[in-house]
């Protein structure tokens, strides 16, 4: 299983799309850093207002970085099984003394390790740039930062589990399209839910909750922001109802649901792949 995990990690990091995304990531961080440099120069010195604007800067940075990470996940894992079936690589592996579940879990571990490294880097870079340029306004509590990182990383892990499942029965292109559509639905659902929370429309919020059940990535993003901007114990809360975080924090049950969501899709991947004729 670890051999497969290592191979998957190496395989993804050897792909051109990965190198291209790394370049784009550097481009994004450069632009974002430049923007922060000028924005923090003109920031009002009023502590409360400055902190509110800082949360927006961080939210925008994390939103876009989560978007890039999501695309890396989808493009990196859409063909994780199907492309190997199409090329015939998988045939030589399946005749080895390996259980098929070892291949699924090994591949998931491989891609997860890469996503955790990449996600941690881009998350740290966004927070690091905000700290560098807006040191006097910086207020994040370190333990919340770590907890939020865990929630941030859950986004690509959810996407990877669904993409893995799709890859067991769909061709690579169809799988990419399916997961991008699901991801899009989740984002739109998140917008609708946030809009609903601001105007107190239960119907809109319910639509958002249903789309979160379909794919809980947007809910995890909002929960991540809520945890990140929560104050240290004993301090007063500076959190406000941001456009990105919404008015209500997704409950801890959504977190539990997300864990089961990942496990469910891994189980389905194993189940479909175990019966698959190659």
């Amino acid at each position: 299983m670890w051999t497969i995990a290592k191979l998957t990690y190496q395989e993804i990091t050897h792909r051109r799309v990965f190198h291209l995304l790394l370049l784009l990531t550097l481009g994004f961080l450069l632009l974002y850093g430049l923007g922060l440099h000028y924005a923090y120069q003109d920031l009002p010195k009023d502590g409360e207002l400055a902190r509110i604007i800082t949360t927006e800067f961080i939210s925008i940075g994390l939103y876009l970085s989560a978007f890039i990470t999501a695309f890396l996940t989808i493009l990196g894992s859409a063909g994780i099984i199907s492309a190997e079936v199409e090329s015939g690589i998988i045939q030589t592996m399946l005749v080895k003394p390996l259980k098929r579940w070892e291949i699924i879990i090994g591949k998931y571990l491989g891609i997860s390790i890469m996503l955790i490294i990449y996600g941690t880097f881009i998350y740290s870079a966004v927070l690091g740039l905000n700290y560098y340029f807006g040191r006097e306004f910086y207020f994040l509590y370190k333990w919340n930062t770590l907890k939020a990182l865990g929630l941030y990383l859950s986004i690509p892990l959810v996407l990877a589990s669904v993409t893995m499942w799709g890859s067991t029965f769909l061709p690579t292109l169809n799988n990419s399209v399916m997961v991008i559509i699901l991801y899009g639905i989740s984002i739109i659902g998140g917008f609708i839910e946030r809009a609903g929370s601001f105007v107190d429309k239960t119907a809109l919020m319910n639509i958002g909750i249903i789309t979160s059940l379909l794919m809980p990535v947007e809910a995890m993003y909002r929960k991540m922001l809520n945890v990140l901007f929560r104050s240290a114990p004993g301090q007063f809360t500076i959190f406000w109802d941001s456009f990105f975080s919404g008015k209500y924090e997704p409950s801890k049950w959504m977190l539990v649901f997300t864990v089961f969501y990942i496990l469910f899709f891994l189980w389905r991947s194993i189940s479909v792949f175990s019966k698959k004729d190659i």
Binding site: L7, Q10, E11, H14, S87, G88, I89, Q91, T92, V95, K96, P97, L98, K99
Partner: peptide, 19 residues
């Protein structure tokens, strides 16, 4: 699992990790 420990297979259509 046991029989796969001692068999080898060269498929008709195959490719390997080119890198």
């Amino acid at each position: 699992y046991k029989c796969r420990e001692k068999i080898g297979f060269l498929p008709e259509l195959f490719s390997y990790q080119k890198w």
